[in-house]
Amino acid sequence: MADNPIAMVLHGGAGVLANRSYDPEVAHMHELAGQAKVMLEKGQAALDVVESIVYELEISGLYVAGKGSSPNTDNRYELDAAIMDGTTREAGAVAAMEGYVSPIHAARKVMEETPHVMLAGWGANKLADKYRLEKVDNPASYYKPAAVPDNRPIATGTVGCVALDDKGRLAAATSTGGTLKKTPGRVGDCPLIGSGTWADTEVAISCTGQGEYFIRSLAAGTAAARIRYLHETPDEACRWALKDVKRLGGDGGIIAVGRGGQIAFPYNSEGMKCAVLYPDGRITAGVQDHS
C-alpha cells in the first residue's frame, strides 16, 4: 500500500531577462504541475511523470529546449537530454541529436532498449529512427527559437523535472537545446549523468545554467553525494554545489526533491523559472528572482 508523500519540481531554465514578461511560461508551468499532481495521485511512476512533463516542455516552444531551441553557428539544431531512474540508477541520454521532436523520448529508449547510457549524433538519430520516434521534417518551419533578441551566448531555457511518487521512487529528466549560438558538436551538462542530471534512492536532481561549469563541478553528483554521505538536506547540498559552480565562474540553478518530499530550487543566476508541487498538495509557479 502506498503511503509515501508525492512531490515534483520542474524548471524552465535559469537566467531571466529584465523587461520581459514570462507570463506564458508561468501559466504553462503551473498547468504542467497540475498535470503532474494528477499523474502522481493516480499512482503513476516518477519516471513516467518526469518524461511526460519534460516532453510537454519540449513541444511547447516556450523554452530553449525541443521546439524552442536555437540553431548552432552552422544553423543546425543539436539537442541533448537525459533521464534517470533513482531506484535502479538506470539512465539514458542523447547528445547532439538532430531531427527528432523529443530528445527525452529518445533518452528513455537509450535507457530501456540498449546496454548503454548515452548515444550521440547519428547514433542517437539511428536509434530514434528504429523506434519510429516523431521526426522534424522541416527544421526551418518547426523550430521557433526562444532566444533573446541579440542572441547573447547564454542558456535561458533548459527544462527539467524531478519527482517523487507514492511508492517512494525518485526520477529526474532534463532536456536542452544548449547555449545559444553554440559551436557545432558542443555537449553541455544536461545529458551527462552526474553533472546536469541525477537520481538515486535519496534525491532526484536537474540542473540548468552554464553547462561547462556544471560539468567541471560535477554539480548534480556532488549535491547527491553530500546528501548521502554528509546527510545534508537537498537545499543545503544544492546550494553548496551552486557555490562551487560560482567559484569556477558560472551560474545557474538546481531543482531537487528528496525521498521524504523535501523540495529545493536554489539558483545564483539572474533568476529561474520553476513550478513546485509540494507534498501537501500546494502548487506554486513563477519566475524566481533576487528582487
Rank of each mutant, 00 (worst) to 15 (best):
G221N: 09
P145T: 01
C190M: 01
T176V: 07
Y213K: 11
V203A: 10
I215K: 13
I193M: 13
R226H: 01
F214M: 07
I227M: 03
L164W: 06
L230N: 13
L230T: 02
Y213A: 01
V162R: 05
H231C: 03
A225V: 07
Y213P: 03
F214C: 06
R226C: 00
A163P: 03
A199E: 06
K181C: 03
G209K: 01
I205Q: 03
A146E: 01
A173H: 12
D165M: 11
T176H: 11
A204T: 04
I193G: 08
V162Y: 05
S195Y: 07
D150L: 11
V203L: 07
T174F: 06
T201L: 10
G221S: 09
E212L: 04
A220N: 12
I215F: 01
A171L: 14
T156V: 12
A220W: 11
T176S: 15
I205P: 09
E202A: 15
V162F: 08
L230C: 14
G209D: 02
G157D: 11
K181D: 09
G188I: 00
E212S: 11
K167V: 11
T222V: 08
I215G: 08
A225G: 07
P153S: 08
T156R: 13
R169M: 02
F214R: 10
S195Q: 14
G177E: 07
V162I: 05
P153Y: 08
G209H: 01
L192E: 08
A155S: 15
V203M: 02
R216D: 04
R169C: 03
L230F: 14
A219P: 07
Y229S: 01
N151K: 04
D165E: 06
V162A: 06
P153H: 06
A146I: 12
A224K: 13
Y142S: 05
I215C: 12
G194Q: 14
T174K: 01
A140P: 00
A171V: 10
L164E: 09
C207M: 01
K167A: 15
I193L: 13
K181H: 08
L218K: 00
S141G: 06
G188P: 02
T174G: 03
A220V: 04
F214H: 12
S206L: 03
R152G: 06
I154L: 15
W198V: 07
G209C: 00
S141M: 10
K181F: 09
Y229V: 05
P149N: 12
G185S: 05
D165Q: 10
A220D: 12
S195C: 15
V162Q: 05
